[in-house]
Amino acid sequence: EETYEVDGEEQLKKVEKMLRDRNLDVEVEIHNGKFVIRAK
């Protein structure tokens, strides 16, 4: 499992696309105004 923490939606979209391109399962949560992306 990998976890990424990003600020802002633009970064979120980039990271999310990169992970989905690797066929990973992606979950996004918001913690303290930051996006936390978990990939399995």
Score class of each variant (00 low, 15 high):
residue 1 E to F: 14
residue 1 E to T: 11
residue 1 E to K: 09
residue 1 E to R: 09
residue 1 E to C: 15
residue 1 E to S: 11
residue 1 E to Y: 14
residue 1 E to M: 14
residue 2 E to D: 06
residue 2 E to C: 15
residue 2 E to R: 10
residue 2 E to V: 12
residue 2 E to G: 07
residue 2 E to P: 06
residue 3 T to E: 10
residue 3 T to P: 04
residue 3 T to G: 07
residue 3 T to R: 11
residue 3 T to V: 15
residue 4 Y to Q: 02
residue 4 Y to T: 01
residue 4 Y to V: 04
residue 4 Y to M: 04
residue 4 Y to A: 03
residue 4 Y to N: 01
residue 4 Y to D: 03
residue 5 E to A: 07
residue 5 E to G: 03
residue 5 E to V: 14
residue 6 V to S: 01
residue 6 V to T: 05
residue 6 V to K: 03
residue 6 V to P: 02
residue 6 V to M: 05
residue 7 D to T: 11
residue 7 D to W: 15
residue 8 G to W: 11
residue 8 G to L: 10
residue 8 G to E: 07
residue 9 E to Y: 14
residue 9 E to H: 09
residue 9 E to M: 12
residue 9 E to D: 07
residue 9 E to W: 15
residue 10 E to F: 08
residue 10 E to T: 06
residue 10 E to D: 11
residue 10 E to C: 15
residue 11 Q to A: 12
residue 11 Q to R: 05
residue 11 Q to S: 09
residue 11 Q to L: 12
residue 11 Q to Y: 08
residue 12 L to M: 13
residue 12 L to G: 03
residue 12 L to H: 03
residue 13 K to N: 06
residue 13 K to E: 08
residue 13 K to S: 07
residue 14 K to T: 10
residue 14 K to S: 07
residue 14 K to P: 02
residue 15 V to E: 01
residue 15 V to G: 00
residue 15 V to D: 01
residue 15 V to T: 04
residue 15 V to P: 01
residue 15 V to M: 11
residue 16 E to P: 01
residue 16 E to D: 02
residue 16 E to N: 06
residue 16 E to G: 04
residue 17 K to F: 03
residue 18 M to K: 03
residue 18 M to N: 03
residue 18 M to D: 00
residue 18 M to H: 04
residue 19 L to N: 01
residue 19 L to S: 01
residue 19 L to Q: 00
residue 19 L to P: 00
residue 19 L to V: 02
residue 20 R to M: 08
residue 20 R to N: 04
residue 20 R to A: 06
residue 20 R to V: 03
residue 21 D to M: 13
residue 21 D to N: 09
residue 21 D to H: 09
residue 21 D to L: 12
residue 21 D to W: 11
residue 22 R to A: 05
residue 22 R to V: 00
residue 22 R to L: 08
residue 23 N to V: 03
residue 23 N to F: 12
residue 23 N to Y: 10
residue 23 N to Q: 08
residue 23 N to R: 09
residue 23 N to W: 11
residue 24 L to P: 03
residue 24 L to I: 08
residue 24 L to K: 05
residue 24 L to G: 02
residue 24 L to Q: 05
residue 25 D to I: 14
residue 25 D to Y: 13
residue 26 V to C: 14
residue 26 V to W: 15
residue 26 V to L: 10
residue 26 V to T: 05
residue 27 E to Q: 12
residue 27 E to N: 07
residue 27 E to F: 13
residue 27 E to K: 10
residue 27 E to Y: 13
residue 28 V to L: 04
residue 28 V to H: 01
residue 28 V to N: 00
residue 28 V to A: 02
residue 28 V to Y: 06
residue 28 V to T: 03
residue 29 E to H: 11
residue 29 E to T: 13
residue 29 E to M: 11
residue 29 E to N: 07
residue 29 E to C: 15
residue 29 E to G: 05
residue 29 E to F: 15
residue 30 I to H: 08
residue 30 I to G: 05
residue 30 I to T: 07
residue 30 I to F: 14
residue 31 H to Q: 10
residue 31 H to Y: 13
residue 31 H to D: 05
residue 31 H to R: 14
residue 31 H to G: 05
residue 31 H to E: 07
residue 32 N to L: 05
residue 32 N to E: 08
residue 32 N to R: 04
residue 32 N to H: 06
residue 32 N to Y: 05
residue 33 G to P: 02
residue 33 G to D: 04
residue 33 G to K: 02
residue 34 K to P: 01
residue 34 K to A: 05
residue 34 K to I: 10
residue 34 K to G: 08
residue 34 K to W: 10
residue 34 K to V: 09
residue 35 F to C: 09
residue 35 F to M: 08
residue 35 F to I: 10
residue 35 F to A: 02
residue 35 F to P: 00
residue 35 F to K: 00
residue 35 F to S: 02
residue 35 F to Q: 01
residue 36 V to H: 06
residue 36 V to C: 15
residue 36 V to Y: 12
residue 36 V to D: 03
residue 36 V to I: 14
residue 37 I to H: 00
residue 37 I to G: 01
residue 37 I to S: 00
residue 37 I to A: 02
residue 37 I to F: 04
residue 37 I to Q: 03
residue 37 I to V: 12
residue 37 I to D: 01
residue 38 R to W: 06
residue 38 R to D: 00
residue 38 R to I: 05
residue 38 R to M: 04
residue 39 A to H: 04
residue 39 A to I: 15
residue 39 A to E: 00
residue 39 A to Q: 03
residue 40 K to L: 10
residue 40 K to Q: 06
residue 40 K to I: 11
